[in-house]
Design a binder for these strands. Structure first.
Lengths: 167, 167
DNA sequence: AAAATATGTCAACAATACTGACTTATTTTC
DNA sequence: GAAAATAAGTCAGTATTGTTGACATATTTT
């Protein structure tokens, strides 16, 4: 009943890797994400914020002066979805908007001091978790992790993601 | 304004890794998850299912005879949240429940044929993506990816996760 | 027999996403 | 300079997935 076209007496292989190994990594990706997000989630509860607020704070923190349209493209959500969380972050003094200098239609996003502080607090446990995960490995392993994750991103997004990630 | 206690003229390091490298990996984790989930999401739309249904299908597929309580512990959601999606999956013929043989209070979960087929279809693009991400690397890199992701999981969950992931 | 366990269910609520429609201000194009 | 395109904001309605709290049923353990 659980058999499928994927199975053979031995094991199907994609790109020389057994299904079994691939499944393990797939599942670990789920568990890693589940726990990776749990620390910031707890902090966010104190502010009645959620993950959506975290994402906005993070990307504005890393890219001061980010435009709304860029943020939408990073998050892959609609303007209306972003609108709500952004309004809250602005109303509660974590983010400010400035008119674009060359294009006055733009509303460039910046963190306030308390926004910066919250972004830092949210990042800290995640940075620690990543550092701990790489601690046992030799040099070059950070590079491997980076390349591995990068390869999971859509091909057509590579250039954009690289531009955002690399500083 | 964007300065914080984390910064020094050079760069703060956690466990010998620069903040910058850690930030990159943190962000890539977000982008990887964003795109990793996008392929199954499209398939699920045809069934009016969401990610919650996918998770249930996946873990039942990998663990036939899974108990409700185990699934709740894997997903870290409430009984009520699971209840809704599980009911739909049962009503629409993707999952069946069988009474536990040793403990008749238990409702063991199994996939039907169409459940198996859907689970396979959902897994396929993700397996391919993982395989492609590891294709360029030498032997042992699958092991590295596995250890890296595993290290991101909560310490106290390690034993349980290992039991679920390793077959 | 009483207590604990495994599961199911009702109701209300919250966060985050969506579609569709429309507005305002500004810049670009013809 | 008028028309079209772009950047952003907003209103209204809906769906998914999560939450709490309360309570019911069947079964097993103490």
């Amino acid at each position: 009943m659980t058999d499928s076209k994927l199975k053979t007496p031995e094991q199907t292989k994609i790109a020389g890797l057994s299904d079994e190994k691939l499944f393990e990594i797939m599942e670990l990706f789920f568990f890693a994400y589940r726990d990776f997000t749990s620390d910031p989630d707890e902090i966010l509860m104190n502010y009645s914020f959620g993950r959506a607020h975290h994402r906005v704070l993070h990307f504005v923190s890393r890219n001061p002066g980010l435009r709304i349209s860029q943020l939408l493209d990073i998050l892959k959500i609609t303007k209306q979805s972003l609108g709500r969380v952004l309004r809250q972050l602005i109303e509660e003094g974590f983010i400010v908007q400035k008119e674009g200098e060359t294009d006055r239609r733009q509303r460039l996003l910046f963190l306030t001091d308390s926004g910066s502080e919250l972004a830092r607090r949210l990042a800290e446990p995640q940075l620690r978790r990543i550092a701990a995960a790489l601690k046992y490995k030799g040099t070059g392993d950070a590079a491997f992790a980076r390349e591995f994750l990068y390869s999971l991103v859509d091909q057509q997004e590579h250039a954009k993601v690289k531009a955002i990630v690399r500083k």
